Amino acid sequence: MHLESLEDTRTLARQLVQSLPEGTLVLLTGPMGVGKTTLVKFMAEALGFKGEVTSPTYTLIHEYPTPQGLVVHIDAYRMADQEELYNLGLEDYLPEARLVLIEWGRPEVFPDSLEVHLESTEQGRRVKLIPHGHAPAVVFG
């Protein structure tokens, strides 16, 4: 899938939130500056969140309440051991949250996740949706 504009990214976000069941763990991967936080922003907006969405690089976790449930946004970039997220209550979030979105999440640490991999291209962004373990497979168009 290819994204040429912010509107394409917004459309992808709407399609994802409509397709993903409650409690889905989504890993957002790709190089720095490729649009991971922007995709989180559009996903939260698609679920009805009206506030500001920012990267939780230093705070680690941001919560965004929406009419459809809580969106949990985690930035694991600075974490040497991502398994530590389980000690910080990740498993408590999963049954309660509408979505848990982890920037820089590694599939080997989170085996039942949908990976959304973003890459820059000359025309915009290329997106690959990669289900791991028991994560829902998402197919568009």
Rank of each mutant, 00 (worst) to 15 (best):
L39W: 06
V40G: 01
V40I: 14
V40S: 03
K41Y: 12
K41S: 13
M43W: 07
A44M: 15
A44R: 10
E45M: 15
E45P: 00
A46W: 06
L47Y: 10
L47C: 04
L47M: 13
L47T: 02
F49Q: 02
F49V: 02
K50M: 09
K50I: 07
G51I: 08
G51L: 08
E52F: 04
T54G: 05
S55Q: 04
S55D: 03
S55L: 07
P56D: 08
T57H: 02
T57F: 00
Y58A: 12
Y58G: 09
Y58P: 10
Y58H: 13
Y58E: 14
T59C: 11
T59E: 06
L60P: 01
H62N: 15
E63Y: 12
E63P: 02
Y64R: 02
Y64N: 01
P65Y: 05
T66P: 05
T66L: 09
P67L: 07
Q68F: 04
Q68S: 09
G69Q: 06
L70K: 05
L70I: 02
V71P: 00
V71E: 01
V72S: 01
V72H: 00
H73I: 04
H73W: 08
D75W: 03
A76T: 05
A76I: 04
A76L: 06
Y77L: 03
Y77S: 02
M79T: 04
A80C: 00
A80P: 08
D81R: 14
Q82I: 03
Q82V: 03
Q82E: 15
Q82C: 04
E83R: 15
E83Y: 14
E84L: 15
L85H: 13
L85I: 10
Y86E: 11
Y86A: 07
Y86P: 00
N87G: 15
N87S: 15
N87I: 07
L88S: 10
G89C: 12
G89A: 15
G89Y: 15
L90R: 11
L90G: 05
E91W: 00
Y93T: 11
Y93F: 13
L94T: 10
P95H: 09
P95E: 09
P95Y: 08
P95A: 08
E96P: 00
E96S: 09
E96Y: 04
E96Q: 10
R98V: 00
R98C: 00
L99R: 02
L99V: 02
I102M: 05
I102Y: 08
E103I: 13
W104P: 00
P107W: 03
E108N: 14
E108H: 15
V109A: 10
F110H: 02
F110C: 03
P111T: 14
P111C: 06
D112Y: 05
D112A: 04
L114Y: 01
E115D: 11
E115C: 07
V116E: 04
L118D: 01
L118P: 00
E119M: 08
E119I: 03
S120R: 10
E122P: 05
E122T: 06
Q123G: 07
G124Q: 05
R125H: 04
R125G: 01
V127D: 00
V127S: 01
K128I: 02
I130D: 04
I130Q: 06
P131T: 13
P131A: 11
G133L: 11
G133S: 11
G133W: 10
G133R: 07
A135M: 13
P136T: 12
A137L: 12
A137D: 12
V138T: 11
V138C: 07
V139M: 10
V139S: 14
V139I: 11
V139L: 15
V139D: 13
